[in-house]
């Protein structure tokens, strides 16, 4: 980008812009597969953009591009300097820059998904970056993970427990995970998925659609 790139400084109040959805969770839990599923299911009806935060350069972005679920230009990758949690929580500047670049190039958008680099249970998105966040676990990480909690599990707007098809093979009790998650999350929702069995992630996509509708209703552009 050169010196004449247009000024795309946005007001922080959220009016007139897309819902920003963070997708976080441990390595291998299925974040990228979920993002691909959401693009597949919501792409026909919503204008989307995706920002990935890879641990190693553009691996996840390349996966999404190859999956063909979204125009390549609508997927941007952010490098995180060995610290994926810093880039989504403490210093969100590069991610905000990527989000606003997508909005300027392709806007108005309905939804921008920011996928975190795989991290641990303490990683959450700054409210300055993500308006809503999904935390993705998988059953093969063990059915004790919801009980262990951590900010991702306890505070995410939606907890997704993925790879339910593996539960019998790894001896994970979905009932225990559901009960423990409810205990630490109160009324916040939990959805069980197997993106391998349902590549549309229909239940998660329905939740995201509701969030987008509520956001656009509450944050319509100022009439000015």
């Amino acid at each position: 980008m050169g010196a004449n790139h247009e000024d795309h400084h946005h007001a922080p109040d959220g009016h007139g812009r897309a819902l920003r959805l963070g997708v976080g969770g441990p390595v291998g839990s299925g974040k990228t597969a979920l993002v691909a599923a959401l693009c597949r299911t919501l792409g026909p009806s919503l204008s989307l953009g995706v920002v990935t935060n890879d641990i190693y350069t553009t691996e996840d972005a390349e996966f999404l591009r190859r999956a063909g679920v979204l125009d390549e230009e609508r997927i941007l990758a952010v490098e995180t300097g060995c610290c994926p949690h810093t880039a989504i929580r403490d210093d969100i500047a590069a991610n905000l820059d990527a989000v606003e670049t997508l909005e300027d190039r392709f806007g108005p958008l309905d939804l921008v998904i920011v996928e975190s680099g795989g991290d641990n249970l303490t990683a959450t998105f700054s409210r300055g970056l993500a308006d809503r966040q999904i935390f993705v676990l998988d059953v093969s990480g063990g059915d004790k993970v919801p009980r262990k909690g951590g900010p991702g599990v306890t505070t995410a707007d939606l907890l997704v427990v993925n790879k339910t098809d593996l539960a019998p093979m790894v001896g994970a009790d979905l009932g225990v995970m559901d009960r423990d998650a409810a205990a630490v999350r109160g009324a916040r929702p939990v959805l069980f998925t197997s993106i391998r069995q349902d590549p549309t992630a229909a239940t998660v996509a329905a939740w995201v659609s509701e969030q987008v509708a509520a956001w656009s209703h509450a944050h319509a552009a100022h009439a000015s």
Binding site: V78, E79, T80, G81, C83, T86, A87, D90, D91, I92, A93, A94, D97
Partner: peptide, 11 residues
């Protein structure tokens, strides 16, 4: 270095 201006990801 905690100034949240993206510097943490440059080496």
């Amino acid at each position: 270095s905690r100034l949240p201006a993206g510097g943490h990801a440059h080496s």
